[in-house]
Amino acid sequence: MNSVDDYLAAQPADVRERLAELRRRIHAAVPGAGEAIRYGMPTVTLGGSSLVHLAAWKKHIALYPVPGGDDAYERAVAPYRGAKDAAHFPHRDPLPYDVAVLIVERLAALHRQD
C-alpha cells in the first residue's frame, strides 16, 4: 500500500465506509494531523511522528496504541481494549466513534507533552 486511500480502497465496502468515517473524525479531532502508511497500516501523524495506527482485520477495526487515562476514560475504553494496548471495534457492532476520538485526543495530549 502506498497511501491511506489505497488501503481504504482495498477494503470491503462496509469496512471502507467505517474506516473513512473514523479517518474523518480523527482528523477533525486533531487539526493539523498528517497521515502515512507505517507497518502496513494507515497511521495518523502529528509533527511527523506516529500518533495512532488503524487496521482493518477480518472481525474488527483496531486502533494502536491505547494509552491509559483517568477513571472516566478507562470506563469508556475498557469494553474495547484488546491485546497489546489496542482497541478492537467489532464489525458486527456500530463503531463507537466517540470512544475512538477520545483515545486519539488522549494520544494527542500525551504527544504534545513530549
Rank of each mutant, 00 (worst) to 15 (best):
K58L: 09
G47T: 11
K59H: 15
G40H: 02
L54H: 09
W57E: 11
P31H: 01
P31N: 00
E35N: 05
A20N: 10
R18D: 02
K58W: 09
A62M: 12
T43W: 03
E35R: 11
G47L: 06
V44E: 04
R24M: 08
G47M: 10
L19S: 03
L46F: 12
A28S: 11
E21C: 10
K58E: 15
G68K: 15
A56W: 03
L51G: 00
G48K: 03
A62S: 14
P42M: 02
H60N: 13
G47Y: 04
G48C: 08
T45R: 00
M41K: 12
P65N: 00
I61W: 06
L46T: 12
P42L: 08
R23P: 05
T45W: 12
R25G: 03
H53N: 13
G69P: 14
G40L: 01
G32W: 08
V30A: 10
L51T: 07
I37S: 06
A28Y: 10
T43K: 07
L22R: 04
A62P: 03
P65Y: 06
G40K: 02
A29H: 07
P42A: 10
V30K: 07
S49F: 14
G47N: 09
K59Y: 13
P67S: 06
P42R: 08
A36S: 15
A55P: 06
V66H: 07
P42K: 07
P31E: 03
L63W: 02
A20K: 11
R23A: 04
T43Y: 02
I26V: 15
K59N: 14
L46Y: 13
V30M: 05
L63Q: 05
H53V: 01
E21A: 14
A55E: 13
V44K: 03
P67C: 04
P67N: 08
A36H: 12
G69T: 06
R18G: 05
G34K: 00
G69D: 13
L54T: 10
K59D: 15
V30N: 06
A36N: 11
A36T: 15
I61G: 08
K58R: 15
G69W: 13
L19W: 08
R23L: 08
